[in-house]
């Protein structure tokens, strides 16, 4: 009874070697498609600027599925080449089974460590920035969770940090914008905070820092950053007319303020942010 049960269990565990090889090949195909042609196509087509929400979901799917398929492909390749597993020798193959999974595990750990390091770095920088802000900026007289920085350069930004998010406006910005334009800026920044864009950006930033030799990671990061700006713009456009938002962007962005709007990752999505206001 017992040996029979063991044999049945043994039989159930043995997967034909051919099936493992076939599955590994399929996963490699998926992983390669998601690593190169799919993201490059996604960065080139026009529709994401008309549907940034969907495009962001697709990018998240590509990132997640790309990573998982790569890990799965490594795991199955390990199993396919491990001698003990290939022969179906379940018991003596237990050690070989673990050895076979080492490359997949290492890759997964590498990605997770990069995510953790990025989170720690960004959190630390945000703390430092908030401490500086406490010393250097005054609370806005009427708006909650908004601080005014006494500097002539027109800037507006938000520091996302859970419930304690802060929107920062410089005095130079307040001097330069009319009340409607200010509404546009604040609505834009509030969208970043409320929709937790920082989490999305952090994930793609971590991916980029984990794979610096992989241009698609930088491309994905730039695309996601641009799409997030479009979402925030759409939020602002619900409160003000497109012309008002355009005026605010020009007043801030064309005033000689340093810091290029786009990075050089091969993404042209940044300019779409402005073109879509006209379309």
């Amino acid at each position: 009874m017992l040996p029979a049960a063991a044999a049945a269990l043994d039989g159930a565990l043995v997967i034909p070697h051919g099936a493992i090889v076939w599955a590994a090949a399929m996963l490699w195909l998926v992983a390669l498609l998601l690593a190169w042609p799919v993201p490059v196509w996604l960065a080139r087509v026009g529709w994401p600027m008309r549907a940034p929400v969907i495009a962001l979901l697709v990018w998240q799917g590509v990132g997640l599925a790309g990573g998982l398929s790569m890990i799965g492909a490594l795991a199955l390749t390990g199993l396919a080449v491990a001698p003990g597993v290939a022969q179906g020798a379940a018991v003596s193959g237990a050690a070989a089974l673990w050895l076979a999974l080492i490359p997949a595990a290492l890759f997964a750990i590498y990605l997770l460590v990069h995510l953790a390091v990025t989170i720690v770095q960004v959190t630390r920088q945000r703390h430092r920035h908030l401490a500086l802000l406490d010393m250097l900026s005054a609370p806005h007289p009427t708006r909650a969770r908004t601080r005014v920085l006494d500097d002539a350069v027109p800037v507006a930004y938000c520091l996302p940090r859970g419930a304690g998010s802060v929107t920062v406006l410089s005095q130079g910005l307040l001097d330069r914008l009319d009340p409607d334009e200010l509404v546009a800026v604040i609505a834009h920044e509030r969208a970043h905070v409320e929709q937790r864009h920082d989490i999305l950006l952090l994930a793609f930033r971590a991916w980029r820092s984990a794979l610096p030799w992989f241009p698609v990671a930088a491309l994905a990061d730039a695309e996601v950053a641009a799409l997030v700006e479009m979402l925030a713009d759409d939020h602002a456009r619900r409160e003000v007319r497109d012309e008002v938002l355009a005026r605010a962007i020009l007043a801030v962005g064309a005033s000689g303020v340093p810091g290029a709007e786009h990075d050089a990752a091969g993404s042209t999505r940044g300019s779409d942010r402005f073109r879509r206001l006209v379309a």
Partner: peptide
């Protein structure tokens, strides 16, 4: 920290807009 880097290199904060190129300004 606010201005030094191009926007999508900084995960610390989200800036309203950086320096807009001449072509982009023309579009607007």
């Amino acid at each position: 920290e606010v201005l030094g880097e191009s926007r999508d290199r900084s995960a610390v904060l989200a800036r309203f807009v950086g320096s807009v190129s001449e072509e982009d300004a023309a579009v607007l």
